[in-house]
Write a protein that binds this DNA or RNA. Structure first.
Length: 369
DNA sequence: AACCACACCAACCGCCTTTAA
DNA sequence: GTTAAAGGCGGTTGGTGTGGT
């Protein structure tokens, strides 16, 4: 039989057998994997389907032996790196599950993705962390916790894995040696005291007020030289976050004003010994011009907010309202800025404080001076 | 030289979310 | 609306290098 004829025959059988077949996760070969309701019937056809599969994989250029080939694990060889690098440079990043075959690698797509993101991609910054990087990581960890990918997004060219390793191997110890609990960023003595209290009187409320951290945060977005003004009555919760941000959209921008604002807000709470983190009960109640969405399943809204700016260089207003039932201690906070979004730069340069009034119309310009 | 302990870090694993069919 | 695949993330592991005994 001519190969084209064979191909047509096999493909015809393939199409009619689709409910009994599936794609192998790692090598994309066709495998016998009927949908659950059909498994009973599939047994009848196992012999013929097995033959079919052999033909099908042969026709589609995937020898059945690939199913038995064990995917390689462990360290990447320079040859593998070269293959992956050349492939991505040539074809770009697409579907990772198909990359291994296309690049001729005996790896799973996930492994390829990780290798590219953590080692091969050209924009990676290598070498040791500077003191500034170190300070920034500690500050961000204080605000974000172990959200390594979020922390990494504030350090250009650094990967979440790199930062995580650096934290676990170096920074944790460094903080402990300074008498600071790396988990809470508070003095270790405080934690011991609390632990002791809990152990001694597990059913009585803690009457000691939490001691302030003796170590000032390395990054303080609200310098003491500025005044924080309570804009609302202390017991009149009606808080609304209303930043007016002129958003200079770039397609691959790592920054989203919405994320930044929430980061600032969470940082603000942390610096004031209020550990409340805006969570999924917060919701965006209005926006104009752009689509804003957030997943209701995540704990931190700052990690899930998405801003899709359909009109480049357009400005938009948005409002976030906190669920009153969540935490009555969360009061109003009001944010105003008309700065070009590009000007925000990295996290420590974020100009706008929460409930903050520096006496200028443009909060950003006053920090520049 | 041999052994051990420790530090570092690349890579894996498992879980969760998102996307596509 | 449901399901499966893909993507993304954080925790963990295991290999390798280094320094001390």
């Amino acid at each position: 039989m001519h190969i084209n004829k064979l191909e047509q025959e096999v493909l015809h059988i393939y199409k009619t057998s689709l409910p009994f077949l599936n794609r192998h996760r790692s090598c994309s070969a066709v495998v016998l994997d009927p949908h659950p309701p059909l498994r009973r019937h599939a047994l009848t056809y196992v012999p013929i389907l097995t033959t079919l599969l052999a033909l099908l994989n042969l026709v589609m250029g995937r020898h059945p032996s690939c199913l038995k080939q064990k995917l390689k694990k462990g360290l990447w060889s320079p040859e593998e790196d070269e293959k992956l690098y050349n492939h991505i440079i040539r074809y770009g990043v697409g579907c990772w599950s198909t990359v291994p075959q296309q690049a001729g690698l005996q790896r799973c797509g996930k492994s390829c993705r990780l290798r590219w993101l953590n080692y091969l991609r050209p924009d990676l910054k290598r070498g040791t962390f500077s003191q500034e990087d170190e300070d920034l990581i500690i500050s961000l960890h204080q605000v974000l916790g172990n959200k390594w990918s979020q922390i990494a997004s504030h350090l250009q060219g650094r990967t979440d894995n790199e930062i995580k390793n650096f934290w676990n191997s170096t920074l944790k110890k460094k903080l402990r040696s300074q008498g600071i609990d790396p988990n809470t960023h508070r003095p270790l003595a405080d934690n011991n005291m609390e632990l002791l209290q809990k152990t001694q009187c597990p059913h009585t409320p803690n009457k000691l007020s939490p001691a302030p951290a003796t170590r000032p945060p390395l990054f303080d977005p609200f310098p003491s030289s500025h005044n924080i003004i309570q804009k609302t009555e202390p017991h009149c919760p009606d808080f609304i976050l209303t930043p007016d941000v002129e958003y200079d959209s770039t397609p691959n921008s790592n920054f989203a004003p919405y994320d930044i604002v929430l980061d600032v807000w969470n940082c603000y709470n942390n610096n004031n010994n209020n550990n409340t983190i805006i969570d999924s009960k917060s919701s965006i109640i209005s926006s104009n011009g752009d689509t804003l969405s957030n997943s209701s399943n995540r704990k931190s809204m700052s990690s899930s907010a998405q801003i899709c700016n359909h009109n480049n260089n357009s400005s938009f207003n948005w409002v976030v309202q906190q669920d009153n039932k969540l935490d009555s201690s969360l009061q109003n906070f009001h944010l105003e800025d008309t700065t070009s979004f590009e000007d925000y730069g990295a996290f420590p340069q974020i100009p706008f404080p929460v409930g903050f009034d520096c006496g200028f119309d443009d909060a950003y310009s006053c920090l520049d001076s």
